[in-house]
């Protein structure tokens, strides 16, 4: 668990950390769209430099970002090899074991890999600098306009924050039940298939029982404090956009525009 950094919040204090989550989410969306515009290597170069700047400004190390990418590495390598072998357009670059590798295929695949890397970098910028709860507040606000077409913005945000809040609890609960069952002779590593199924059952059933119990307790506790979904509520933390936030969105929009221009020129 300690090594897993993808999507983890880094409690630092930087100008990026202090920005409005709505601005950060909007900027991230714009950047993600920009990635998918085929602006060539110059475009990706520009994106890389800009995003690297943001990462440094947020006080994050490249080592941290690199660690976030690690879980995706195997997938990327797999993707790279598959694409190189399967795509058959353009000039033949070289041939190994009777399989021709085409120049176009390699280029195309490299584009995909670079896009994926940039995507991880961008989303890391957001998740590492924004507390999960601030993120849900931001999502709720951004979904507000869609309430007119019956998107339950507040409920979605509440759902996300409750889910996030219960992750550590459930991990702890799982470990507790595992230990309790191990004390009853359950062997989670060895044993026949039937024994393994029993072992998993002995873990899942109590976990579900306690999760439902927790859900009920939480629902009661919320109702006892007068919570009613759909009712207008005030907030303890009021988000406020500053000039820097608008600037961030502006810059992201500019980046997107630049990509479109580059793509047109190419």
């Amino acid at each position: 668990m300690g090594e897993f950094t993808l999507g983890r919040y880094m409690p630092l204090d930087s100008p990026i950390h202090r920005m409005d989550p709505r601005a950060k989410i909007m900027a991230m969306l714009l950047c993600l769209i920009a990635i998918f515009i085929p602006a060539g290597w110059i475009g990706y170069g520009v994106m890389f430099v800009v995003i690297s700047g943001v990462i440094l400004r947020a006080g994050l190390s490249f080592r941290f970002v690199w660690k976030s990418m690690k879980p995706m590495m195997i997938m990327m390598i797999f993707l790279f090899i598959m694409n190189c072998v399967v795509l058959r357009t353009g000039d033949v670059l070289f041939t190994v074991f009777g399989i021709s590798i085409y120049k176009e295929a390699v280029l195309q695949t490299l584009y995909i890999v670079v896009r994926l890397l940039l995507m991880v970098m961008i989303t890391t910028c957001l998740t590492a600098t924004t507390k999960p709860l601030d993120m849900t507040l931001g999502i709720e606000d951004l979904l507000k306009p869609f309430e007119r077409i019956h998107v339950p913005a507040h409920e979605i945000a509440m759902l996300i924050s409750i889910a996030l809040r219960f992750i550590p609890d459930l991990i702890e609960e799982t470990q507790r039940i595992m230990k309790a069952q191990e004390s009853r002779g359950v062997d989670l590593k060895e044993g026949s298939l039937k024994e393994k199924i029993m072992a998993i059952l002995s873990l899942i059933v109590p976990l579900f029982v306690s999760a439902f119990q927790r859900a009920e307790d939480l629902a009661n506790a919320m109702e006892a404090r007068g919570y009613a979904p759909g009712e207008p509520r005030t907030r303890y933390k009021v988000l406020k956009m500053t000039t820097a936030d608008w600037l961030l969105i502006g810059c992201a929009a500019l980046l997107l525009a630049a990509m479109i221009v580059l793509a047109r020129m190419a």
Partner: peptide
């Protein structure tokens, strides 16, 4: 494994480890 059988450990709030369909089956687990 044999030690786990010889030294029985009852955790705090052990009721959360029950999972079988019947009481007798759970105890015999």
């Amino acid at each position: 494994k044999s030690l786990r059988g010889d030294a029985g450990l009852v955790f705090q709030f052990p009721e959360y480890q029950l999972f079988e369909e019947t009481v007798i089956k759970d105890i015999a687990f």
